[in-house]
Design a protein around this nucleic acid. Structure first.
Lengths: 216, 216, 216, 216
DNA sequence: CATGAATGAGCCTTCATTCAT
DNA sequence: GATGAATGAAGGCTCATTCAT
């Protein structure tokens, strides 16, 4: 076992623990027990409870950044990209299984708790979250720009607004799921996608008139 | 001063305190000091720290429900209603001033922390939140139904999807503001509103060729 | 029981405890048990272990300063004053009984431990100790000045050196007692006093013959 | 490097560390780091933290005993011996440089802390300290006896008292330096020496009336 | 009604010590 | 010989809660 291996394992297990349990209300005794080590071992690798939490959250943020690269390929038709985005709940499940984090991550509510708790304790986390959301937004905006060039969507699309709308909607849908425990997203998500698409899409072989009408 | 008046005052002040400070990290001593009373006084009116928190959050939920009634009148044109909704940030500020809660409520991040903390401690809070969001959604859906009848929007509008979209988008926009500290909402919110409106609106005197295309 | 009474009692009891036990090696559990209260009670009156120690030591310093006023009256013949000084071990015993500190203070070794431990933790204690020793020295020097005027001791007495010698000797004698557990002081202290006196004393009616008087 | 060499080196380095740092407050990790080895290495040569401390202090005591033999030669005139003794601060500095202990030993306060800490943990240390002070005292008493025989000092000198006085004064002067940070010793020490000498010295060729009187 | 002194359980953290390598 | 990962027993401290006044 390499020296860093144990630390990484602890971070990953702690991440799962913190995803499922509230940081402030978790005693280090509980955490150690959940990680299968003693408190002393934790202090061997981390400066304290906070440090362990910080390391875990940053590890999650790193993983999230990595998922973006995989989940948002830039060379596919916009419609395909959107369809993928609006099935983010499935994506999260896949990631959970694939990353070894189990279902701790699947429930987006857990991630939100985690991020908010981290945000409260470590203000510099905000910068990283900002980067992630900005990245998400930029990928969307870029894809739409290219789609305009390729004639997939209308020239007069308010790209900024649509990118923002999708970003906020995705986040809000997950938040609603956290707050209300409903699963509207899997049903209504695709329908929202269709509606947005219908608004911005250009008919396969165009027909100028349609455009003019909605222009303005 | 009626007997219950003191208790209500304590709840309101505690609400402000909890909006600004993390519940778990606030000691009852700090809370008592912030409320200008002694610990004993708190225990006189509440069963304990948790009970004070629970009462405060429920008071906020009551207020939120009240705001809906005022903020979402049902007999105005849909477009006006939407315009109001998409300026929710301004609405929150007004409510903050008007309700005597000061700017503790203005920052939506504070409300979210509060709800999440409450959700974690008191699972039955979820039901109340669910009701609120459902109410929000239903008001929208009803308004759209009536707008269809009045010929304000298209008959083929996917009312469920649009109501869901707006609900989730509003929540998500506020969440993004909490996570990233950006103020996109005030700029892009209205543009998103316009885009959605353009999608569902029926031209004043109906009938432009473009319609046929999107009617599928 | 007045509010400050308990705190004062705790300080006095803690002082006795710290005089008998090493500060660093005493757990707050032990201390609380010795004081007959719980840890929480200590934290009610003091900011922490250090604060309790600091308060106790300062209380002792205050008492020591008070003892000086009583123990070193300035209007007595120098010889009487010196005789008193060189029986300081008896004086400490009296003070111990009289002050309610019991025999914790009697053993000067305990006081030294206490002062040294305090010095290590609270550098500002040095100033107070300095004042005490300076006061001791000054009282001696003043008394000798007056004794010169009154013709009790020789004009050519090196007052500074003698005051320093007596101060250092007294301290050193007590330190030796601490380091070696011998009780030379009670036997040899008076003889040292006689030797010093013989060196500086002026015959009762001046003039060489008078020296015979001191030959006893 | 002989097998015991490493152990000796560790003891010496630990001695310097303990002279500068408080034993109780130093963790074995800090100590190991300061000694440039790992904890395991320390446990290889010593039974534990206490054992290392005990060995270090005993090493210092051995060195102190050795210094006496060199610093207090018995075949020099008493006045020379006394002059040396009353410049003990310089002697300590020389010893510090000469012994390789650096300035850790120069500050007598450090030595006192060390001895007191050792005394508290290992009561048998008291015996060794007693021996050292007794040795110091005896060397002085012997020298004075011989000085009486050689006609250097008066026959009626209270040898016991003077030896005790000088021993205690020396110790007390160093203690005052530790307690108050003043440097009176270097100035007043020699003057005290002169005063004591004047008291006991026999004029080179005798002949003052006063002498006869005090000869008893 | 209200106070605040006192409690005690539990928290985070430190650290001497052990032991597999 | 030497390492450092891991342990576990305290230690200092916090704080919700109780209760005599």
């Amino acid at each position: 076992m390499q020296p860093n291996d144990t630390k990484e394992q602890l971070e990953l297990q702690a991440l799962q623990f913190f995803a499922r349990n509230d940081y402030e209300r978790s005693s280090l005794n509980d955490i150690a027990k959940a990680l299968g080590v003693t408190k002393g071992a934790i202090y061997h690798y981390f400066k304290g409870k906070d440090d362990l939490f910080y390391a875990s959250v940053n590890r999650l943020l790193n993983m999230v950044e990595g998922w973006f690269v995989d989940a948002l390929p830039r060379d596919i038709p916009l419609k395909i990209l959107l369809d993928n985005l609006f099935r983010m709940d499935e994506t999260l499940t896949e990631i959970g299984e694939h990353s070894g984090l189990g279902d701790a991550i699947t429930d987006y509510k857990n991630i939100m708790y985690l991020f908010l708790a981290a945000l409260k304790k470590f203000p510099d986390i905000r910068k990283r979250l900002d980067d992630i959301y900005t990245g998400f937004h930029d990928v969307l905006a870029d894809a739409m720009s290219r789609a305009v060039d390729k004639g997939e969507i209308r020239k007069d699309t308010d790209i900024e607004a649509v990118a923002y709308e999708i970003t906020a909607f995705s986040e809000g849908a997950l938040l609603l799921g956290a707050f209300t425990d409903r699963k509207d997203y899997s049903v209504l998500g695709p329908r929202v996608c269709e509606a947005i698409w219908a608004r911005i899409a250009l008919p396969a072989m165009g027909r100028r008139q349609g455009e003019k009408n909605e222009t303005k």
